[in-house]
Each structure stands twice: as structure tokens, then as C-alpha cells.
Nucleic acid binder design. Structure first.
Lengths: 127, 127
DNA sequence: TGACAACTACGAACCCGTTCGTAATACTGG
DNA sequence: CCAGTATTACGAACGGGTTCGTAGTTGTCA
């Protein structure tokens, strides 16, 4: 009966990344971690995290006065959801095309190339 | 002095895909092509394309009474822009992670795997 | 204890994307 | 030529995302 979680927005994703990196955290901690890149007020971060709790993107522990938030889905699953959406709307489902553009878009170190190579190998092995 | 074009939204991307597939086209044509998947009115498509012309996402030939629209950027460049954005906001710039999720997200045929393999090879060759 | 600080809750404002209704204009068939 | 049709232009409404101000509550410490 539970619906799939909505895709996080950009601002929400920034918050989730802090939670994934650091583990469960308070609004204060997330806000501090984000203060380098974002320049918004504390209550903005608070409001966003409250909304994310409503949406189910994060869990909230209210046992203490200062609430503690945690990401509800693992990072990989959210990433897959986002990639899947992009795949549909911009690539007509062609993963190969997406990979091509991914390689062109970002600098890819030899080390990363090796990782990708292993991925391909394991996929091909399953044929 | 000209600014980079904004990222197309989802609705805009649907229109762009028609223009990429078909070449320059009228609002009528785009609307018909989209009528299978979208169920919006004609004026909605028109308005979107007018806004896209303002943004610079499409060029508009007004020489005839019925205007003809064409995508301003090639598909690959727009795709790269979108991938790049996703790479930054969801993957911390790690293309390898993105590729991994792309392979998990969509069904990848052996044929596509071979294409990707060739991509990797050419990239590694340039080391 | 009393004043101050931290935290949550809430609502309002604003922008953007999307959708559509309506009006004005040009074209076309009878 | 005239009525009907297609096309463009424009404004308005609506929802969602983001930001913040303010109020109320709880904790702290001098």
C-alpha cells in the first residue's frame, strides 16, 4: 500500500548527501555541513528536512528534544532512481548512450576506468 | 557574452526529442507526435515552445505564417549537460559510480555492453 | 530563578514550470 | 466574398520547491 518515495529535489539531495556521508544527524549539523556551499538560513534547512520527513525521504527520531534525522533509502538506491529517470526522459532507455555521455561529461581517471572495466566484465560474464 | 543555455525541463525535453528525431517541425507536428504519451492541449505545446524560443533552447523560423521550430543544440550536447548535472549533485563527480548505477538501472543488452566496452577501450587507449 | 540561547512549528511570499481559456489574426473552401 | 478553421499571442491560475520571519517551547547557566 505504500507508494514509492518521490525523487528528491536538488536541495533535498544536498541534505541527503550529508546524511549518507555522516550518518544520522541533527538539523544543526546538516546546516553547518552545508554552509560551505549553500548560503541559506537555518530555518530553511529545518523546513526542508521537515518536509522530507513528511514525504518519507528521511526518518526522524523525536525522542530527544533535538531531533535526529536519517536517510530512509541507501544512497545507491536513490542514485539508481535518479539515473533511471534521466535514462527514460533523455536517453530513450539506452544505457549505452548514457554511459557514453557520462564518460565525456566528467574527467575520468585511469583508476575509475579500471573500475568501470570490471563492471562491464562482471555484466558480460552473466550473459 | 552569451550565457549558457538553461537545462531543459522534463516537458521541454519531450519536445526536444521530437525535434531531434524528426528535424525542424511545426507546433502541430510536435503536438501530434506527443499526443501518444502526453494528453495536454495544443496551446500548452505552443506555449512551451514559445518559452523555449525565449530561452534559446529552440530556433524559430517565422518566415511562414506557420512557424517552424528547430532544436538549437545537438542531442548529445544536451545529454552531456544533463548527465553532468546529475553527476555533480548526486554522485560527487564520480563517473564510475554513475556508470555502475546506469548499468543496474536499465536493462542492458549484450549488444549495448559491447558498445560500452569499445568506449572504455578507446578511453583507455588515450591514457 | 530569570534572562538568554537553541530548537521546532508554522505560515507567507516568491519564483518557476505547466496547463489552459480566450482573443486576435491569417488562411481556405464553398 | 464569407464562414469556418488553423495558428499565434497573451494572461491567468495552479501546484511545487525554496526561502525566510515570527512565534512558541525547552533547555542552560550565571
Amino acid at each position: 500500500m505504500r507508494k514509492p518515495l518521490p525523487r528528491p529535489t536538488d536541495a533535498e539531495l544536498a541534505i541527503l548527501r550529508v546524511l549518507w556521508d555522516h550518518g544520522p544527524a541533527t538539523v544543526r549539523h546538516v546546516h553547518e555541513a552545508l554552509s560551505g556551499t549553500r548560503e541559506t538560513g537555518y530555518t530553511t534547512t529545518l523546513k526542508l528536512m521537515q518536509i522530507m520527513a513528511e514525504k518519507g525521504l528521511v526518518r526522524r527520531d523525536e525522542s530527544a528534544r533535538t531531533h535526529v534525522y536519517a536517510a530512509r533509502l541507501p544512497q545507491e538506491e536513490t542514485q539508481r532512481q535518479l539515473v533511471s529517470h534521466l535514462l527514460d526522459r533523455a536517453f530513450g532507455g539506452s544505457a549505452a548512450e548514457l554511459v557514453l555521455q557520462a564518460l565525456k561529461a566528467g574527467e575520468t581517471s585511469p583508476d575509475q576506468l579500471r573500475q568501470i572495466q570490471e563492471l562491464i566484465d562482471s555484466h558480460r560474464g552473466a550473459e
